[in-house]
């Protein structure tokens, strides 16, 4: 007997209590505080991203299960053929796969923004008298956490199957930090797609079209020395190659100055180009 007849409408279980108009008056008569600055607004949005991770922890599968799978797969699949043994190969491979996984994760920034538009949440945020891009920055802050989780998980997996970075803890930490800086910058490509295209699937498609070739036409899997000349040119001018080389160098305990500089340069360029494109699109929405 669950159907409600008009008679028992008032006694329904999920009936909402009435709005109390007295307190409503009180609510309305408050003084408005001054609007928050860009930093507090961005932090508030960052807090939102954390809450989303808290409520949907299964989302983290993308930054934990998949990367570990990639490490295991590539190490044992190619290890013997490319470097003699998986154990030797992982010394070369792990920093690169780290870069690859984290760069792939940047796609989620675009998806999250696309979702905000889709669900109308962005309209509400845009009605707030705050620095408008803070919504995007908030997403990026959450993503930085995601990148850190992905990196840690992969490093642990790597260590378990024999990854022994010569650079020790400082080298590894610096490598991860550099990667996060780059990923933050690269995320702006995703945010641009998120604002540009209509639905989530297209965001994924567009991002993949960019991310896939970048990852594979790099030095992540093999030393470019083994490639034909024209391909080497391509690979050496790929930002992912610079990032992977820099991270690998840092973790191996070398000081890969040029690659680090290249990575930072690419990061600045990405923020300038795609950051401003994103802003323009955002303002136009």
């Amino acid at each position: 007997m669950t159907t409600a007849t008009p008679g028992d409408l008032a006694g329904r279980k999920d009936e909402l209590p009435p709005v109390s108009t007295g307190p409503l008056m009180e609510l309305l008569s408050m003084e408005r505080p001054p609007p928050p600055g860009p930093l507090s607004a961005s932090l508030a949005f960052g807090w939102r991203s954390m809450l989303k991770i808290k409520h949907i922890p299964e989302q983290l599968a993308d930054v934990t299960v998949l990367p570990v799978m990639l490490v295991l797969m590539f190490t044992y699949l190619f290890g013997g053929a490319l470097a003699g043994s998986p154990r030797e190969y992982i010394q070369y491979l792990l920093p690169g796969v780290l870069v690859m996984s984290v760069v792939m994760t940047t796609m989620y920034t675009g998806i999250a923004i696309n979702n905000d538009i889709d669900k109308g949440v962005l309209d509400r945020f845009r009605m707030l008298p705050v620095w408008q891009p803070s919504t995007l920055v908030g997403h990026l802050l959450g993503d930085v956490l995601r990148y850190s989780i992905a990196s840690s998980v992969m490093l642990v997996a790597g260590l378990l199957i024999g990854f022994r970075p010569e650079g020790g803890v400082p080298g590894v930490v610096m490598g991860v930090l550099l990667l996060i800086v780059f990923a933050f910058a690269f995320s702006w490509v995703g945010t641009m797609f998120g604002l540009l295209v209509r639905d989530e699937r297209t965001v994924i498609g567009a991002s993949m079209t960019v991310i896939f070739p970048l990852n594979f036409l790099s030095d992540i899997f093999v030393d470019p020395q083994t490639m034909p000349g024209w391909l080497q040119k391509l690979v050496h001018n790929n930002p992912i190659t610079h990032v992977a080389s820099a991270v690998r160098g840092l973790m191996e305990g070398r000081s890969p100055g040029t690659d680090v500089l290249w990575t930072l340069g690419w990061s600045v360029a990405l923020v300038v180009v795609f950051g401003s494109l994103t802003m323009k699109l955002y303002q136009r929405k």
């Binding site: 001054p34 508030a44 949005f45 809450l51 949907i56 669900k119 109308g120 707030l128």
Partner: peptide, 21 residues
């Protein structure tokens, strides 16, 4: 409706409260 569906009602309001200053 234009609220964050993943967040609770409380969290939505706290977020917007912070964003209004």
């Amino acid at each position: 409706a234009s609220l964050d569906q993943d967040l609770t009602g409380m969290e939505n309001l706290v977020l917007l409260g912070r964003l209004t200053g």
